[in-house]
Simulated assay, not measured.
Amino acid sequence: MMIKKKHSLNFVLLLVIVALNLGCDQVSKIIARKTIAPYEQITVIKDRFILTKVENTGAFLSAGSNLPDFIRTLILTILPVLVLGYGFWFLYSHRNLPRLMQIGICFLIGGGIGNIYDRIVHGSVTDFMHMDFILFRTGIFNLADVSIMTGIGLLLVNNLMAAKARRELEESEEELVVNERDS
């Protein structure tokens, strides 16, 4: 019974992480919609960080915005809703995932819900941030995109750490075998 309560509390905390990602995204988009005119450019940090509002009917960097409505709805709304539902199920049903992996999945789900919500309610996703790193420039993005990229980064770090731990374990096992053989 105690393990089930711990799992439920853990899942509630994961839902809070999803909700925080979603909430930050939606609040920032509400502010952007109310205060930034379409294509207006507001310089925040010299020419490096600029606010400019666009409504994106496609996916990342407007990919798919020219698809027929039915196909675009299927690929950019229905399929992602199914994937997000699977993400929730995966989090709930796999109790022993590494903490970093759980948090990464929460960031992916929170960001995904933020963009899907926009697509369903507004017919497009509000993007409003642009960065220029001198060597390269980003497309125009939003906080949901930041959550998604952060989630991907956390999953990558988790996988790299797991791979390192596996290598270290294999090396220690090999060393143990060599030591036993030499004894």
Rank of each mutant, 00 (worst) to 15 (best):
N10E: 07
V125L: 11
D25V: 03
A163H: 07
L143W: 01
K4M: 13
L84N: 05
G153N: 07
I42W: 09
V146E: 04
M149K: 01
A32G: 07
S147Y: 01
I116N: 03
A162Q: 13
N66C: 11
A59W: 00
A63G: 06
F70V: 14
L169M: 14
R33I: 12
L160A: 08
Y92V: 09
R119W: 08
E168H: 10
F107D: 01
R166A: 14
F88M: 12
R166K: 13
I120K: 06
I109V: 06
A19F: 05
D127S: 00
E180L: 15
S172T: 14
D25Q: 08
S8D: 14
W89H: 09
L108D: 03
L13D: 10
F136I: 10
Y39V: 11
D25S: 06
I140F: 02
D69W: 14
L15I: 05
A59E: 04
I105D: 05
N66T: 12
V54Q: 04
F11D: 05
N142I: 04
G114R: 02
I30C: 07
T35Q: 07
G58H: 05
D118S: 06
Y92F: 11
F70D: 10
R95H: 13
E175H: 10
N179T: 15
S62H: 09
P68A: 13
G110W: 06
G58Q: 06
N158D: 12
